[in-house]
Design a protein around this nucleic acid. Structure first.
Lengths: 172, 172
DNA sequence: GCCCAACGACTGCCTGAGCAACTATAACCG
DNA sequence: CGGTTATAGTTGCTCAGGCAGTCGTTGGGC
């Protein structure tokens, strides 16, 4: 009996998911050395790249893989650890900003070079320039098709964000 | 100030992670229609493709993204739902098999065609044959480099498994 | 200006999963 | 054979995160 599971489609997703899992594991290990989880790293990165190193809680949720309640709790932890602070929004008293502290920026600066090195070591450096370009091109097309921007409610993310980086919005 | 975060390496992982997140969301939605979570689908698939539609708990853990305690609990749930059964191992009284029931096989057969369709719709069908081949080739190389088989403790997975399918072993 | 709908953040409750501890069995070794 | 060590599975504890409900705030319709 020829197995249904040898279907090339299954193999294809298998490759993508395994590559993701493998890289995640590598990255997690490196981040953990600096006392950060993947989610925390994503949060602090998003904030650090935003004007004023701050973002409203909702916007932060929209840019990450977290729900708003998830953001509340991550920011709780990171505020407890001194990496972030909450700041009241002057215009809208419902909103509050999450702001990266000096300690947070320092932690990020300690972490980033190693992280980039990991990316190069395990991902981009594994391929020649043209093979990498082909891979990224394929990924971009799959991402554009499958990435659930509409589902995620992050309707108002600025286009340059979507184009330039990873807006890993996913809700269940 | 040119932003450190525009580094092409960041963009590259962003693409991979977003593609994964997008596909995961799509797949989860379809699986949910059939009352399965992604983990349950993975478990039942692994079992169904194994001889006798069964696998020892430990082996199942080694083939999935779960720890052994995680497997215990998933199998608990799926046994409660009638999709699986535990069967004592005759040779080794410590071990037990997880076996797919008839209901479990039926559920899987209901789910699989739609799942393959989703893969085609959101992933493989998005690219021409040569672009897909290039993508898969790149993914394979990244997977081979980064996939933490050694880290995961699944030292004894049979080679054909690793070659043919997704062994998404990841431990923290 | 007033009311009601929408919104932003937070909290209670629940589920899923990992780690470490534990039990029972197996295997090894003297 | 008896004791020590390793292995298979389960369970207690903990934590992260989602959903739904709550509260305060805002803004739009009249």
């Amino acid at each position: 009996m020829t197995n249904v599971f040898d279907d090339p489609r299954i193999t294809a997703v298998g490759l993508l998911f395994e590559a993701h899992a493998g890289l995640s594991a590598r990255f997690n290990a490196q981040l953990e050395e600096h006392g950060l989880s993947a989610v925390e790293f994503e949060v602090i990165t998003r904030l650090a790249r935003s004007p004023g190193n701050q973002l409203r809680m909702t916007d932060l949720a929209a840019q990450t893989s977290l729900s708003t309640s998830g953001v509340t709790r991550v920011v709780d932890r990171m505020e407890r650890d001194g990496l972030l602070t909450r700041r009241a929004c002057p215009n809208d008293r419902r909103s509050s900003y999450a702001v990266v502290t000096a300690a947070g920026m320092q932690r990020l600066n300690e972490t980033l070079p190693g992280h980039l090195q990991m990316i190069e070591q395990w991902f981009t450096g594994q391929l020649g320039p043209e093979a990498l370009a082909a891979l990224l091109d394929g990924l971009r097309r799959v991402r554009d098709a499958a990435h659930p921007c509409a589902t995620a409610g992050s309707d108002d993310v600025s286009p340059e964000q979507v184009a330039a980086t990873d807006n890993a919005t996913r809700r269940h």
